[in-house]
Design a protein around this nucleic acid. Structure first.
Lengths: 199, 199
DNA sequence: ATAAAACCGGACCGATGGTCCGTATGATGG
DNA sequence: CCATCATACGGACCATCGGTCCGGTTTTAT
């Protein structure tokens, strides 16, 4: 996520930025991950996060603004690699490949991201319940998917279809589907959707 | 929603059921509607509902079990008519018509239901955030959509596609779409999806 | 009329997200 | 190395919320 928010926080120090601030920021992020993994999305309160990070609650809010902000940044961090892959030419993901292939590759990656970060996805969803369409990561994904759909099927309401397609990665739906068939099932189901949409 | 839950509450008195209980139940339901309409989903706490209904908080919980239960019943009530229409022959909605037509008609109805009950949809979603796949009304819709998809496209993961399609009526998405184009836009976008899926 | 069952209301509870401010700390210039 | 001051820290504090509980009341049945 480095740089997505344009602030001075990106894991690296800058001029006038205190070392403890950087350290704490990282500690909070890591503690959140661990709690998420260990106890599931519903049991990660900011009090717990602060305690686990060895930090006061105030610090969590100063760094991330709100529960929402925390999970948004965590997701951005986890999604950074995918973001770059999408812009790099050479793979089916990147520019140059035909839209259908790009979209198929993209949803495959998303499925794997969802599998590896189910708890985070769930927490992020709850946290962004209000204006979920303002989350930077979601917006990037939506812009990308939307553009591919528009390219492949000019007639269709691409923006809408993109939202619907991304809805496939709703944490609860993903869990529900993966519970019976794992990522493979999720991937193949979503690919089915994509094919039906773009063919 | 009369009868969906098999309990003695259906708006009508029964043997041994106190008149005040029936009255209060109705008062709570109506108060919830009004608050929803007036202040939006986020500002309807159960304290407010109780106050607006002229009833103690305990009564709300005794009647509906939880916040979730309250909104589930309210939605069930609002969706009852559609449920019956789907089972009655003679319209494009009911049995007899070809699956594509039935599905198109169904999503049209859903779109209108969503328009008329946006706040309720939103509240219901938040309230059912955990196990949203256990809500009776959603389950009925899913079973119906799923069956139609399976009938029209045997190869596809119908259950999954049905979830994805019903995702179109997510309150936030619906509001977002209707903000620019009204129900008409929502309807036509969803119809586009349906056609792409089943054709 | 009376007793029992059903129901009522609202005080009460624990948890949560978020705020505030006196205090500690780390960066910086001399 | 030290003084200074912006910056960050922490945790007490707050309002709100969903949910529980129980003493008191109302309704029904006998």
């Amino acid at each position: 996520m480095a740089g997505y928010y344009g602030d001075r926080w990106s894991g690296c120090k800058g001029v006038g930025v205190r070392a403890d601030a950087v350290r704490n920021r990282e500690a909070i992020l890591r503690a959140t991950e661990e709690l998420l993994e260990a106890h599931g999305a519903e049991h990660v309160s900011l009090d717990r996060v602060a305690a686990a990070a060895g930090v006061g609650k105030g610090t969590v809010f100063r760094r991330f603004g709100s529960r929402t902000g925390l999970f948004q940044e965590l997701l951005a961090e986890r999604a950074a690699a995918l973001g770059k892959a999408v812009q790099a030419a050479g793979s089916p993901l990147g520019p140059g490949a035909p839209p259908l292939d790009r979209l198929l590759a993209f949803v495959d990656e998303l499925a794997e991201l969802a599998e590896r970060n189910l708890a985070l996805f769930a927490a992020h969803e709850r946290a962004c319940a209000e204006d979920k369409y303002r989350d930077p990561t979601y917006l990037r994904w939506h812009a990308h998917v939307s553009a591919l759909i528009a390219e492949a099927r000019p007639g269709m309401d691409a923006g809408f279809a993109a939202h619907a397609l991304l809805g496939s990665f709703d944490a609860d739906l993903a869990r529900h589907v993966m519970a019976d068939g794992g990522v493979a099932r999720l991937k193949s189901s979503v690919r089915g959707l994509v094919r039906a949409l773009l063919t």
